[in-house]
Write a protein that binds this DNA or RNA. Structure first.
Length: 569
RNA sequence: CGGGGCGUAGCGCAGCCCGGCAGCGCGCCUGCUUUGGGAGCAGGAAGUCCCCGGUUCAAAUCCGGGCGCCCCGACCA
C-alpha cells in the first residue's frame, strides 16, 4: 500500500480527549475515529489488524471443532424477558421499537439468541455436542465508555457457545476452549494471564478471565508469589493475619470512647491492633437493609457480598437509612441488634474478645464474642484481598497485585439458559434433559486496543508481527533522486512478490516526518532506501521497530526480502 | 446516576474575568528551494465561536435553559 494513497492521516498533536497511551496512539496514528462516546469508525489500518486477529481466532475456533454462525444484532425483547436478563442488564441494554411498535433490543451478547437457535435444531443426544461461534457486533449502553477501544458501546467480539449432554461434556468443551484461547493469545503475540473470575450476572460455576497486564487496566488482579493461584480481586481468596486473641471469652465490659467513630481512631485510642476490633458496614440489597460485620482490619468485597446475597442490586446505605434502621453509626455492632439481617464475614466468627460498638454513641464494648454476645444470619467469606495478604492455596505464598485489561472470558453456564428456554434434548433412554452450556468470549477491538496499550514506546506503537497491519514499512527518502526512487519502487515490488505486506511511504515528505510516522504506526520492520543506504551500492537499511536506532543493518536490495523474512521470524 | 472539567478553522489552543474587526501554532492549497529524525521563503483558502432563548446600541465574552465530549467514582456477560 502506498502511503500517498492511504486513507487516514497521522496527527502531530495528541488529541485532547485521550488519556491513556493506547487511546492517544490509536487516534494519533489515524487508526480509529470517534463518532460518539464509545462509538468508533475503524480506518483501514485498524481494520487490517482486526481482520488478522479475527483470522487467528477463526482458525483456532475451527481447529477446536467450533462452527461459525452469524446471529442477529437486533432481537425481540421477549428473548430477554424469557431469560430474565432484560432486568439484569437494565439500562445497559439498548431498546428500540420497530415500525409496528414491537419492542426490540440490540444484542449486548448472544446467549438468548444461541439458546433459541440450538433448541430449534437439537433434538437428541446424537446431535450433541456442538459449539457455535460468531464474530459479531455487540451493543451495550455502557454508563461510562472510556480509554479508546477498551470500553466502548459498540464493539466486535467473538463469542462461542458450547452445548453438551451433561456436566462432564461441558468440562471437556470448556477445556478445549481454554486451550484454544491460549493458542489465540500466543499467536497474537500477547502476554496474557488467566485469572479466576467472578461470573457476575452470567451465573454459572467456573469462570476464567484472560488479562493483558497494563497499568491502565480496569481490573485489579492478584497472583501468588509461591504457586499458580491467580484471581480477579473481585473473587480473590486471601489469608490474612490470624485473630490476635483466641483465648477464653472474658467478661463483657462497656467503655467510653469519646468521638471515636473509625476503626483507626479506636485502635489508636485503646492501643490495640485493628484486627482486635469488629467493624460494622451497612448496605441496601434489593431494598433490604443489611448489617455487615467484619474484622476491623479487613474491608468488605462488595462483589463477594452481592454474590452471597444472591445477586441483585447492592449499594452502601445512606446515613439516613442507617439512622432509620436505629443504628448508631460509629458505635455500631451486631450485639443486641434485632430485626435487621446480619451478615458476617468469617473473620468475625474467629478469634475472641473483640472491641466492638456498644450501639450507644461514644461507647464501645470490650470482650465481644461470637455466639455468646451476638449471632449472625449468614456467615460468609466477604473479605477483600489486600496487599500483604497471603495465599490460601499454598503455605507461604504472598499475594501480588497488578492491573490488567480483560480480553477474554470463559464461563461454564450449566443449564441456566437451557432451562429458561426449554432447550432440551432426548437422552438415550428417552428422557428430556436440558443441555449444558458454556460460553466463551474474546473482544476483537478491545484486544487491538489492549495490544497497543501494552506494547508501545514514547515514539509510537510496537505491533506484534502477527497482528500488525503490515509487515514492513518501506521508507524512501530523497524523492528527487531518480536512482533512489527507482530502487525503492523495485524493492516495494520485490517485498510484495516475496509474500510480505508492505506499507510504502512514497510521499514527498522530509526524512523526519517519514521516520516519525514509521515509529508512530509501529510496523514490525522498517526498510529504508536513501542516499545513505545506497552509498556503497544498491542497498537498503532494515531495522526492527522493537530494536534501537543502531540495530539497523544494511543489505543489498536483492537480498532484502529474504533478510526481512528472517528478521520477522 | 453523583463529583469535576471542557466545547472557538481539520488538529492543538488563546481570546471570555473587564462586551466593541475572530486570532495563534500545526495541518491544508499554489509556487520556488530543501530531504537520515516532525525544513525555508512567498502567496492563499478555511469559522453555525456547540444549540436555543434573554440582557444590551453591540454578545465568542454577561444571564437562563438544553446538548455533546472527557476525567474520577458508582456500574461493567
Amino acid at each position: 500500500m502506498r502511503m500517498s494513497q492511504m486513507f487516514g492521516k497521522t496527527l502531530r498533536d495528541d488529541p485532547s480527549d485521550a488519556d491513556t497511551a493506547g487511546h492517544r496512539l490509536l487516534i494519533r496514528a489515524g487508526l480509529v475515529a470517534q463518532v460518539a462516546a464509545g462509538v468508533y469508525s475503524y480506518l483501514p489500518m485498524a481494520l487490517r489488524s482486526m481482520r488478522k486477529i479475527e483470522n487467528i481466532i477463526r482458525e483456532e475456533m475451527n481447529a477446536a471443532g467450533a462452527q461459525e454462525v452469524l446471529m442477529p444484532v437486533i432481537q425481540p425483547v421477549e428473548l430477554w424477558q424469557q431469560s430474565g436478563r432484560e432486568e439484569a442488564f437494565g439500562s445497559t441494554l439498548f431498546h428500540l421499537h420497530d415500525r409496528r411498535e414491537r419492542p426490540m433490543v440490540l444484542g449486548p451478547t448472544h446467549e438468548e439468541a444461541v439458546t433459541d437457535l440450538a433448541r430449534r435444531h437439537v433434538r437428541s443426544y446424537r446431535d450433541l455436542p456442538i459449539n457455535l461461534y460468531q464474530i459479531q457486533t455487540k451493543l451495550r449502553d455502557e454508563a461510562r465508555p472510556r480509554a479508546g477501544l477498551i470500553r466502548v458501546r459498540e464493539f466486535h467480539m467473538k463469542d462461542a457457545y458450547s452445548f453438551d449432554v451433561d456436566q462432564a461434556g461441558l468440562d471437556v468443551a470448556y477445556d478445549k476452549m481454554v486451550q484454544a484461547y491460549w493458542n489465540i493469545f500466543r499467536r497474537c503475540g500477547l502476554d496474557v494471564v488467566a485469572v479466576e473470575a467472578d461470573s457476575g450476572a452470567m451465573g454459572g460455576s467456573d469462570s476464567q478471565e484472560y488479562m493483558l497486564l497494563a497499568d491502565t487496566g480496569e481490573d485489579e488482579l492478584v497472583n501468588c508469589t509461591g504457586c499458580s493461584y491467580a484471581a480477579n480481586v473481585e473473587r480473590a481468596l486471601s489469608r490474612y493475619t490470624p485473630a490476635p486473641d483466641t483465648g477464653e471469652a472474658l467478661d463483657l465490659e462497656t467503655i467510653d470512647t469519646p468521638n471515636m467513630t473509625t476503626i483507626a481512631e479506636l485502635a489508636e485510642f485503646l492501643n490495640i491492633e485493628e484486627s482486635q476490633t469488629l467493624k460494622a458496614v451497612f448496605y441496601v440489597h434489593n431494598d433490604e437493609f443489611i448489617f455487615v460485620a467484619i474484622r476491623g482490619d479487613l474491608d468488605v468485597n462488595e462483589v463477594k457480598l452481592a454474590n452471597a446475597l444472591g445477586g441483585g442490586e447492592l449499594r452502601l446505605a445512606t446515613d439516613q437509612e442507617v439512622a432509620a434502621a436505629g443504628i448508631v453509626a460509629g458505635s455500631a455492632s451486631p450485639v443486641g441488634i434485632e430485626n435487621v439481617r446480619k451478615v458476617g464475614d468469617i473473620s468475625a466468627t474467629q478469634g475472641a474478645n473483640y472491641v466492638a460498638g456498644a450501639n450507644v454513641a461514644h461507647k464501645h464494648l470490650r470482650n465481644v464474642n461470637y455466639k455468646r454476645d451476638f449471632d449472625l444470619d449468614d456467615v460468609v467469606d466477604i473479605a477483600k484481598a489486600e496487599e500483604g495478604h497471603g495465599c490460601t492455596r499454598c503455605d507461604d505464598g504472598m499475594l501480588n497485585f497488578s492491573r490488567g485489561i480483560e480480553v477474554g472470558h470463559v464461563f461454564k453456564l450449566g443449564t441456566k439458559f437451557s432451562e429458561a428456554f426449554a432447550a432440551n434434548y432426548v437422552t438415550q433412554d428417552g428422557n428430556e434433559k436440558p443441555m449444558f452450556m458454556g460460553c466463551y468470549g474474546i473482544g476483537v477491538g478491545r484486544l487491538l486496543g489492549a495490544a497497543i496499550e501494552s506494547s508501545h514506546d514514547d515514539d509510537g506503537i510496537i505491533f506484534p508481527v502477527s497482528i500488525a497491519p503490515y509487515d514492513i514499512h518501506l521508507v524512501s527518502l530523497n524523492p528527487g533522486d531518480e536512482d533512489i526512487s527507482s530502487a525503492a519502487e523495485e524493492l516495494y515490488e520485490q517485498l510484495m512478490s516475496a509474500g510480505l505486506e508492505v506499507l510504502y511511504d512514497d510521499r514527498d515528505e522530509s526524512a523526519g516526518i517519514k521516520f516519525s510516522d514509521a515509529d508512530l504506526l509501529g510496523m514490525p520492520l522498517r526498510a529504508t532506501v536513501s542516499r545513505r543506504s545506497m552509498r556503497d551500492g544498491r542497498n537498503a537499511e532494515l531495522k526492527l521497530r522493537s530494536g534501537d536506532r543502531d540495530s539497523a543493518i544494511i543489505v543489498p536490495i536483492e537480498n532484502a526480502a529474504q533478510e526481512a523474512h528472517r528478521l520477522l521470524q
